[in-house]
Amino acid sequence: MAAYLIRRLALVLVVVWGTATLAFFLLFLSGDPVNLLLPLDATPEVREQFRKANGFDRPVWQQYLSYMGRAVQGDLGISLRNQTPALGLVLERMPASMVLAGAALLFAVVFGVLAGVIAAVRKGTTLEFVVLFFALLGQSLPVFWLALMLILVFGLELRWLPISGYGVGPLPGLPALANLVLPAIAVGTFSMAAITRLTRGGVLRELRSDHVRTARAKGLSERVVIYKHALRNAAIPVVTVIGLQLGNLLSGAVITETIFAWPGVGRLVLTAVTQQDFPVVQAAVIVFAVLLAVINLVVDLLYGVLDPRVRYA
C-alpha cells in the first residue's frame, strides 16, 4: 500500500509538472507575449521596457527554468491587470467554485444513484422508461441553455429563487442557499444523468449475480439485498465517474458562473482571457491540475474500501 501510494504521488508530480510546462509554452505558441499583453498603440520604448521587466528578452529555456523555479516556491507570477500574485487571486475565488461544485455533485449523486436504482429494480416498467428518458435528456441539454431556462422559469416567471449573485449565507464565507440552487442544478444535471445510467447498468448486472441470489435465498429483505449487496458491488465504476465528474464540475463551470454572476475561478479565468491576463490563466490551470490529480488518487484509494478484493500491488 505504501509503495503504491508513493508511486501515485510521483505520478501526481509528473502530471502537475507537465501541466505547468504546457501552460508556460501555450503563451509563446500564441505569438509574441509582448504583443499579446500590451495594447496595439504601445510605443517601442514601452514595449522594450515591458520585455525586460518580465524577462521576455531572455532565451525561452531560461524563462522556463525561472518560471518552474518560482512555481516550486508557490510563485506563479503577477497578474498584469491587478498587479497582485496570480495564485492569490485564484485561491481567493476557489472557495466559491468548490461550494458550487460540491452542491452540484451532491445533487447529482443523491438523485442520480436513487434514480439509477429505481430504474434497475423497476426494469421493463413505465417508471424505468421515464427515468431513462430524463437521463438521456439531461446528457443532451447544453448547460448554457438549461441555465437560461432555469432563470426564465424559476427566477423571472415564478420568482421563487434569485437568478444571480452569491448572497449572504447563514455562515461567514458561505452563499445563501437560495442563490446556490439554480447554479447547482444547471451544473449538476449532466453529471446526474451520467450517474443514473451507470448506476442502473451496474445494479442490473449485480442483481443477476450469484451472490445476490444467495442473499435472497438466505431470506434477507429486498432492501438489504439491493443496497448492501447489489449497490455496493456496483459502486466502483460509479465512484470512478463521480470522481471524474467532480473534476469536470470544478474546472468546467465557466459558463454557469458567468451566467449566474457566481464569483468563482471560472468567471475569473474568463475575465483573465478577455483581458489577456495570462499569469492568472496559467495559475488557474496549474491549480486545477493539482486538484484533478488529487481527486483521481483519492478515487483509486476508495476502491479498496468499497471492494476488499482490490489489492494495491
Rank of each mutant, 00 (worst) to 15 (best):
F28V: 10
A53Q: 01
N35M: 13
P33L: 04
R51S: 00
E45R: 01
V16I: 15
N35R: 09
L36M: 12
R51T: 01
W17M: 14
L22E: 09
L36C: 05
L13F: 12
V15F: 00
V46H: 13
A23H: 03
G31W: 00
E48M: 12
D32P: 06
A53H: 05
P44I: 03
L13K: 12
F50P: 01
W17F: 15
E48W: 06
T19P: 09
V34S: 09
R47I: 11
L40R: 15
F28P: 08
V14I: 15
F24R: 03
P44N: 12
W17Y: 15
D41E: 14
V46K: 14
P39C: 11
Q49F: 11
F50W: 01
L29F: 13
P44W: 03
L13T: 05
F24I: 06
W17D: 10
P33G: 13
V16R: 02
R47M: 08
T19L: 14
V15P: 08
L22N: 00
D32Q: 05
N35A: 13
T21A: 10
G31V: 02
T21Y: 12
T43K: 15
A20R: 06
A20Q: 10
L22Y: 07
R47C: 12
V15T: 13
R47F: 10
F50M: 07
S30E: 14
L26Q: 02
L40Q: 13
A20G: 14
D41M: 07
L27S: 03
L13W: 07
L26D: 04
A42T: 14
L40N: 02
V12D: 03
L37H: 12
S30V: 00
F24M: 01
L11P: 06
R47Y: 11
E48G: 03
V12Y: 03
A20E: 11
W17R: 05
L11I: 08
V46Y: 12
A10Y: 08
L40I: 10
V16C: 11
D32T: 05
D32V: 05
D41I: 03
L22H: 01
D32E: 04
F24L: 05
L36A: 11
L37E: 11
S30C: 01
L26T: 06
L36F: 00
G18L: 13
L38N: 10
T19W: 02
V14P: 09
T43H: 08
V12C: 15
T21D: 06
L13D: 13
L22T: 12
V46W: 09
V16W: 01
R47Q: 15
S30Q: 14
A20F: 05
F24A: 02
F50L: 13
S30T: 09
